Computed example of a mutant assay.
Amino acid sequence: MEQLIVGSLLSALATGVGALPILFFKQVTHRWRDILLAFTAGIMVAACTFSLIPQAMKSDSLLAVCLGVLTGTVMLTLLESIIPHIDLEHSRANISMDTQSMLILSAITLHNIPEGLSVGVSYSSEHSGLGGLIAFAIGLQNAPEGFLVALFLINQRVSRFKAFLLATLTGSVEIVASLTGYYLTSFVEGLVPYGLSFAAGAMLFIVYKELIPESHGDGHERSATFSFIIGLLAMICLITWFG
């Protein structure tokens, strides 16, 4: 339980850590942002394909894995249908700045719920090292997200400190979600493989729908591709050494 609390806290607070540079720098180059996003994508793909899905397949049937992955994907799709993704730097929505800021914060907060569930479910698995690895992967994904949210808010004339606080708060929902996921899978028999597969589906959706397109949008595809491969290999090494 202590490991769950520490892991969920670190994963959630990574959003604030990512937003921290906004107190000192107005922007980061597109190249480094794309490299970081692609590296995170590689980490998350490795976590799904070499940890979450194999562990789920050991625990239950292939049908449970397929249903879980599809459920995670559908859940993220529904969230984006309700609150669509908006380009944080080049928004084209024809709405007021105040409303737009609230929409961005709401969207990011809702998207963090499945990520928190992923952490909680991973800690409830019989695989002792899985929770820490998934918390690490989600935390890496949260860091650039926190920076981009804070940068967007500053562009909307929100003070730097307030932008930092708001970006950090968007990640706090993951703590509650991770506890919920942990208790659900701990007390409901047979739910763990579905939960692990759900986490994989949600993470793969984020990678393919968000991270990879954003890392290839500014002409740095080659750097982003190499960064993705390095992230993938780095996570495989972590799984081998600590998983």
Rank of each mutant, 00 (worst) to 15 (best):
M1Q: 10
M1H: 12
G7L: 02
G7D: 02
S8A: 15
A12W: 01
V17G: 10
G18V: 05
A19S: 15
I22V: 13
T29Y: 10
H30T: 10
R31Q: 15
T40N: 12
G42W: 00
I43S: 01
F50A: 14
S51R: 04
P54A: 08
A56H: 04
S59M: 13
L63W: 02
A64N: 08
V65S: 04
L67M: 14
G68K: 07
V69P: 00
G72M: 10
E80W: 11
S81V: 06
I83S: 14
H85K: 02
I86H: 11
S91C: 09
N94Y: 00
I108V: 15
I113P: 03
I113Q: 02
P114D: 10
P114N: 13
P114F: 07
E115Y: 11
Y123L: 11
S124V: 04
E126V: 09
H127M: 06
S128P: 12
G131H: 10
G132T: 12
I134P: 01
F136H: 01
A137Q: 05
E145L: 08
F147M: 11
V149L: 08
I154M: 15
N155Y: 05
V158F: 13
V158Y: 14
A163P: 00
L166M: 12
A167N: 06
G171I: 06
A177V: 08
G181V: 14
Y182D: 03
Y182E: 06
Y183N: 04
T185L: 14
G190H: 07
G190V: 13
L191K: 08
L196T: 08
F198D: 05
F198H: 08
F198V: 11
A202C: 13
I206C: 09
K209A: 14
P213W: 02
P213C: 10
P213T: 05
E214Y: 04
H216T: 00
G217W: 09
H220Y: 15
H220S: 05
E221Q: 14
E221R: 10
S223T: 03
A224F: 05
F228K: 00
F228T: 03
F228Q: 04
I230C: 07
L232E: 00
L233N: 04
M235H: 07
I239P: 03
F242L: 12
F242N: 05
